[in-house]
Design a protein around this nucleic acid. Structure first.
Length: 276
DNA sequence: ATTTTCTCCTGCATGC
DNA sequence: TGCATGCAGGAGAAAA
């Protein structure tokens, strides 16, 4: 499942093959993704040169002179650059063919992903306009993400802290796996109300989130080569995870049994001794 | 206004 | 072996 590190890895991985190349064709084999692939995508994109490939949260943005393609990988999506003559596999839904002879191919079995087009500044797009700050700032102009920010945003909120940090309107890019991992790193019980957590503990949480994501991005970088082939989980997951998916196993820190609880329909994993 | 639930979908593990 | 069932999850939309 693409978490922020994988989206970042994808962004870096496809950038060299796309930047400066012109689009010669757009092939939509299956338009029923999360939202229908817009009918005008092909017309708008053909003939345009992709000038930049960037990321905002888990949204990938392909820039052209007349607009942007917005891509989200959902749960099961992956992007690969392949030779345009490569036969598509099952669930290869969209191709963006370039004048270099390669094509960007979206593979997405569960079809939770999206391919959209916007003429406007993508930052003003409905899906992006209300997004929270990036957890790991790429440059100093980004909105600030720190303990004070989370502390002030959380006042008066009763929802569980884990759901709070997974809300992309609070901060982008923290999925189910890294929410559990980061809370473990900060020693915070995922079930606690967001509004009841101290400023100091939020400062610890921010450090833990950044540490978790940064090392995952670094690990994503090391698996970059086979990432384009992989459509499952990358290798670094199993080795690095401290609590996620370890229900009933021993905590690596204190040996207590890791617990799993359902939260908003999803599983949260935590160590009842290390996390309070 | 905030929080919870529902929804989209396929693949895989489990159980009879 | 085959079928039904349940779970996994990002995040918007609808409901509460």
């Amino acid at each position: 499942m693409p978490e922020l590190p994988e989206v970042e890895t994808t962004c870096r991985g496809i950038q060299p093959a796309l930047a400066g190349k012109a689009v010669t064709d757009v092939i939509v084999r299956e338009s029923r993704l999360r939202w229908p692939v817009p009918k005008n995508l092909r017309k708008n994109l053909i003939g345009q040169t992709i000038t930049d490939v960037t990321r905002r949260g888990k949204y990938l943005l392909l820039k052209t002179a007349t607009g942007h393609v917005i891509i989200h990988l959902g749960m099961s999506g992956s992007l690969r650059t392949v030779d345009a003559s490569t036969a598509p596999r099952l669930h290869d839904h969209v191709d963006i063919v370039l004048d270099s002879g390669t094509c960007l191919r979206l593979h997405d079995p569960r079809r939770f992903g999206a391919v959209l087009w916007t003429d406007d500044d993508p930052a003003r797009h409905k899906l992006l306009v209300a997004l929270g700050p990036e957890p790991v700032a790429s440059d100093s102009s980004d909105k600030v993400f720190d303990g004070d920010y989370l502390f002030s945003k959380s006042r008066g909120r009763r929802r569980a802290v884990r759901e709070f940090v997974m809300d992309s309107h609070i901060v982008v890019g923290i999925g189910n796996i890294y929410a559990s991992e980061a809370l473990f790193g900060a020693g915070i019980d995922p079930r606690r109300a967001a509004g009841g957590i101290s400023r100091m503990r939020y400062q610890r949480l921010v450090v833990s989130i950044q540490k978790t994501l940064t090392s995952a991005i670094a690990a994503g970088g090391t698996t970059l080569r086979d990432f384009s082939n992989a459509d499952g989980r990358p290798g670094y997951f199993q080795q690095t995870l401290k609590v996620y998916g370890r229900d009933g196993e021993n905590c690596r820190h204190c040996s207590a049994k890791i617990r799993r609880v359902r939260q908003a329909g999803r599983s949260a994993y935590f160590c009842p001794r290390c996390q309070r």
